[in-house]
Design a protein around this nucleic acid. Sequence first.
DNA 1: TGAAATGTTGGGGCG
DNA 2: ACGCCCCAACATTTC
Length: 487
Amino acid sequence: MSTALVWFRRDLRLADNAALRAAVDRHDHVVPVFVHAPDEEGDWAPGGASRWWWHHALAALDESLAAAGAPVVLRRGGSLVELRKLAKTVKADAVYWNRLYDPLLVERDTKIKAALREDGVEAESFAGHLLFEPHQLKTGGGGPYRVFTPFWRNVDQRLREEREGGRAPLPTVRAITPSPLAPKGDTLTSLGLLPKLDWAKRFPEHWTPGEVGAQGRLDAFCRTAITDYRKGRDFPAIDATSGLSPHLHRGEISPLTVVARVERLIEEDRSAGVRANAEWFLREVGWREFAHHLLFHFPQTPTEPLYEKFAKFPWRRKRDYAADLEAWQRGRTGVPIVDAGMRQLWETGWMHNRVRMIVASFLTKNLLIPWQEGAAWFWDTLVDADLANNTLGWQWVAGCGADASPYFRIFNAATQSAKFDAEGAYIRTFVPELAKLDDDSIHAPWEAKPAALKAADVALGRSYVEPIADLKTSRERALAAYGETKD
DNA sequence: TGAAATGTTGGGGCG
DNA sequence: ACGCCCCAACATTTC
């Protein structure tokens, strides 16, 4: 009789799970295990909002695994120590897991694989967190891609080829034979993932962590929102995005499953409208892929700009920007679209992508605060915080990363607001003190006529703050700063 | 997956 | 009828 451990990490699913599949197919007994070892991720241990999600996602995973026959054994401590202990307890012959690509985890997993093999335990890792392994995709010159469009052309092409070759998501594991030796694990509560203050109490109105929730999101998105994706995704008051990012981060659904489902949709409904929208959505899955490949090839980028010339960029100093940073974090900048975004983040653990770009441009360019500060705040407050995506996104906005927004591309937050939230519906939702302002005044209340402010019960400096930066002069300051960096 | 400045064009008002 | 100016609307350039 043989036994395998399946070490769950960011692959909290029973569908299209290569490691779990292999364990069930090759061994008599299977013991699922999850080790909570935040120290092993260094500065990038899950933040507050993310831990809330982890708690509920692990509860959901346990429920699904138990229904299939073998509940998950939860442990906290060092991954290798706990895996070794458990392997001994259940007399495991093998440990299987699905690979991750964050620099510290690659290093850790390599050591663990070697150590387990020294113990005489079979250790094997599988692919599944990405569409392709990072080393599989190279430019004509043999190096990693730094530009999205050629990267995506390659990915898109290979997806087609492999699909014709029969590549498809693996079937869901429905029955797992448990080990009679499987111990009881730690309790979920003892992992201490939930926030002490009940800051996340409204998150459940917005999210259903776990594989069932992920599949539900994908289904709902494919039934309705995707038909308006390409245009609708830019408007924060419209519910046109998939909402899959926090699920994808933890592997509650695999990217291949998402791609296969959307490709099926394109085939079933051959109308040009569906195709254009669906293909645009697939590009966004491509950006996720791009971000992960970049992080693998450039492991220093979570803290360092990809392009070295930005190392000496003249950011303001912490003691000078500390108050502005806090105003930004709390949604009290006096720029309505920025404050709406930052408050949506705080209240729901998520922010619409268009608004992420606006608040990030405001922080890095109008306030000249280092992008790493923004990345750190997002890390702690986003339920979809993901090292690869977060790093790419911030370096993109700051102008120092791969395929970045050029340094002179500075969003005018008020113009963006008027363009993408014309009726102010998004602002009114998250900045209620401005709700009564008319559509013309709500994007830049500092320019509104006194009568308009009065009619809406808005008193600048009292009921709503004056803007902490002048959009015109701060833009000029940023242009001058970036000019210094140029070559 | 910008914004602002600058350049060009063409219709209409007007003397 | 004609030239002149204004200025929106659009296009191009620059940051």
